Amino acid sequence: MHVEGQIRVLALGLIKKDNRVFISQGYDPVKQKTFYRAMGGGVDFGETSIEALEREFQEEIQAKLTNISYLGCLENLFTFNGKQGHELLQVYQCDFVDAKFYELESLVFAEGKRQKTALWVDVALFKSGELLLVPEPFLALL
């Protein structure tokens, strides 16, 4: 749950195959801008970031993860929907257990009350700046 004025801790999974990355699409109605972010979500009190990562993928797209390895922590100060945000992102490289996820073009899922889309995107589109990947330091991990 997001509380204004608090730092959120998130666990995000970087899943790559060839030159593509599995990523979630978002939209900021105030900026009228589409952006992309690695899938994952908030770490609940009493759970590790790996447990949160596995739970979020299970809840959102019913996917199990394997080969999970820690890449590092990114700090993200941002404005979304006109509000200031502050996150600490625990980032993990991982793979899907079920190969069917590598065959998908895109996948629509519910995040709370919002409909979101996850899709495979060519890494070159982020590196060229054609598509916006957030937070920006995440680019270095691709």
Rank of each mutant, 00 (worst) to 15 (best):
E111N: 15
V108I: 15
T34D: 02
Y27K: 04
I23W: 02
L131K: 12
Q32H: 09
V43E: 06
V97Q: 02
L139A: 00
A140F: 12
G112V: 07
L125F: 03
S24N: 11
G42C: 12
V108C: 13
D28A: 00
Q115A: 15
F109T: 05
G40F: 04
C73M: 07
G46P: 13
L74K: 01
L74Y: 05
N67D: 12
R55Y: 03
E87D: 07
L74R: 03
L65Q: 10
L71H: 10
A38Q: 03
E54R: 07
V9K: 04
A52T: 11
K64Y: 06
P135G: 01
H86M: 07
K17T: 09
Q93L: 00
G26F: 02
Y92I: 10
D28E: 00
S49R: 00
Q62H: 15
G13F: 04
L77V: 15
Q93D: 06
F138N: 09
K16C: 14
G72V: 13
I50Y: 01
T117P: 10
K17C: 13
L131D: 01
D18M: 04
S106Y: 11
L125D: 11
T79L: 11
P135C: 06
N19V: 03
I68R: 11
G41A: 14
A110H: 15
N76F: 12
D95L: 11
G13D: 03
V91P: 10
L10K: 07
E54M: 02
A99S: 12
G72D: 07
G85W: 05
L10C: 10
G85F: 02
L142A: 05
H86P: 05
F78C: 05
V30C: 04
N19M: 07
T48N: 07
E75W: 14
G46M: 12
T79E: 10
F22V: 04
K31A: 08
E87H: 09
L133I: 00
G72E: 09
Y102S: 07
L104M: 11
A110Y: 13
V30G: 04
E130C: 03
F80L: 08
Q32V: 02
A99V: 11
K113L: 13
G72Y: 07
E87T: 10
F35T: 00
R114S: 10
E130D: 12
L77W: 07
V43F: 02
G41S: 08
H86F: 09
N67H: 11
F126N: 01
E136M: 01
R20F: 08
N81R: 06
F57T: 03
L104Y: 13
M39F: 06
I50D: 06
G13K: 00
S128H: 04
L10W: 02
Q58E: 05
F101T: 04
W120L: 06
T66A: 01
T66V: 07
G42Y: 14
K31P: 14
T117M: 10
E75G: 15
L65G: 10
Q84N: 04
L133E: 00
F126S: 01
N81I: 05
I50W: 02
G40N: 09
G13L: 07
S69W: 08
K100Q: 15
Q93I: 08
E59R: 04
G5D: 10
K33H: 11
A124D: 08
E130L: 08
S24G: 14
F126E: 00
V134F: 05
T48I: 09
L77S: 15
L12E: 14
G26W: 00
G85M: 03
E87M: 02
